[in-house]
C-alpha cells in the first residue's frame, strides 16, 4: 500500500495536533523547561539571584558526590522508602481486605476515618505532630507515662535514634488511606464469580487470598509499589515542618539537603542554586532509575 507523505499525514490529523497543542505547551512550560533549566543551572556556580553566574562544567556534581552529607541524605531517603513502603503496602492491603467485605456495615465509616489524614494539609499535620510528640505534655508521652510504658518522656523528634522512625510512622499514618484506596480499587476488579467459583471448589480463608485473589491483583500491586516508592522519596513538607532535617542531619533526606543548599543559610551565607540543582539532577536520575527498574519488573510480572 502506498504510504502518504509525512506532511500529508500531519495535515490529515491536524485537528488531533491542534487539540494536543495546549497540553504540549503546558507540559513544555511546567515540566520540560524546568527540567532543562535545572540541568543547565547545575553546570553553573550561581547563587540563584545575582547576575553573576560562572560556567563550571561538572564541578558541582564532583563536589556533590564527594560530600558525605550528600550521601548520608541519599541513603537516608532510601531508608525512609524501604521503611515505609512495605508497611503501607501490607497494612493497606489488610485493611482493604477487611473493608472490602460487604457484610461489614461500618466499612464506609472506617474507610472515611482512615482516609481523613490524606485530605488534611501535610504542613498542618507536620506542625500538629510536633506537639503530639512533644516530651512536654505531648499526648504521645502522656499516654506512655500514664500506662507506665516509660518512666521518663521520650524526645521523639529531638533524639537522633527516634526521629526518623517517628517521622516514618507519621508518614505511614498520613498516607495509609490512599494505599488502602488503591487496594480497594484493585480488589473490586476481582469479579464476584471468582469468589463464588473458589468457594464451590473449597478455597476459603488464606487459600482463597493466596492462590486466587493475590495472583489477580498482583499487577496492581506492582503499580501501587511504584507509586508508593516514588511518593516515599518526596517527603519534603512533612520533614521540613516536623524536624527540618535535624537534629544534626538525623532526618535530612535528599529533598531537605537540596533545599538547604538552594537557599540562604541560617549562618548567613549565600545560597547555591547551581549546586542544589546538581544534587537535584543527580537525585532525579536516581529516582528515574528506580522507576525504570520497577517498570521492567512490572512488565516481567505481566508476562508471567
Amino acid at each position: 500500500m502506498h504510504k502518504k507523505p509525512l506532511s500529508k499525514q500531519i495535515y490529515d490529523a491536524r485537528w488531533c495536533y491542534l487539540f494536543v497543542l495546549p497540553c504540549s505547551i503546558l507540559t513544555g512550560m511546567f515540566v520540560i523547561y524546568p527540567i532543562g533549566m535545572s540541568w543547565y543551572f547545575s553546570l553553573l556556580d550561581w547563587s540563584g539571584f545575582t547576575k553573576e553566574a560562572k560556567f563550571i562544567g561538572l564541578k558541582n556534581y564532583y563536589e556533590a558526590v564527594n560530600d558525605e552529607f550528600f550521601w548520608d541524605a541519599f541513603i537516608r531517603s532510601f531508608i525512609f522508602m524501604f521503611g515505609t513502603v512495605p508497611v503501607k503496602i501490607v497494612l493497606g492491603f489488610i485493611i482493604a481486605v477487611f473493608l472490602n467485605n460487604q457484610v461489614l456495615k461500618l466499612a464506609p465509616f472506617f474507610r472515611t476515618v482512615i482516609f481523613m489524614p490524606v485530605v488534611t494539609a501535610i504542613a498542618i499535620i507536620g506542625i500538629v505532630m510536633t506537639f503530639v510528640f512533644s516530651p512536654f505534655n505531648g499526648p504521645a508521652n502522656k499516654f506512655l507515662m500514664s500506662t507506665n510504658l516509660t518512666s521518663a518522656p521520650i524526645d521523639f523528634l529531638g533524639n537522633p535514634d527516634t526521629v526518623l522512625p517517628t517521622v516514618m510512622g507519621v508518614y505511614v499514618w498520613k498516607w495509609l488511606g490512599i494505599t488502602m484506596m488503591y487496594w480497594l480499587a484493585a480488589l473490586q476488579t476481582v469479579p464476584q464469580d471468582v469468589y463464588d467459583a473458589a468457594k464451590i471448589d473449597g478455597a476459603e480463608g488464606y487459600r482463597l487470598w493466596i492462590h486466587i485473589i493475590l495472583p489477580i491483583v498482583l499487577p496492581f500491586a506492582i503499580v501501587i509499589i511504584l507509586v508508593e516508592a516514588v511518593g516515599a522519596l518526596n517527603v519534603f513538607p512533612l520533614i521540613e515542618t516536623m524536624t527540618a532535617g535535624g537534629p544534626f542531619f538525623s532526618s535530612e533526606v535528599m529533598e531537605i539537603y537540596i533545599f538547604r543548599t538552594a537557599f540562604v543559610t541560617d549562618s548567613g551565607t549565600m545560597p547555591r542554586l547551581g549546586y542544589a540543582c546538581a544534587a537535584g539532577v543527580f537525585w532525579g536520575v536516581a529516582v528515574l532509575f528506580i522507576t525504570v527498574l520497577q517498570g521492567l519488573w512490572m512488565r516481567r510480572t505481566r508476562r508471567i
Binding site: F136, P153, D155, L157, G246
Partner: peptide
C-alpha cells in the same frame, strides 16, 4: 535541661 529542647 528541659526534656525536648531538641524538638522546639
Amino acid at each position: 535541661a528541659f526534656p525536648g529542647v531538641m524538638s522546639m
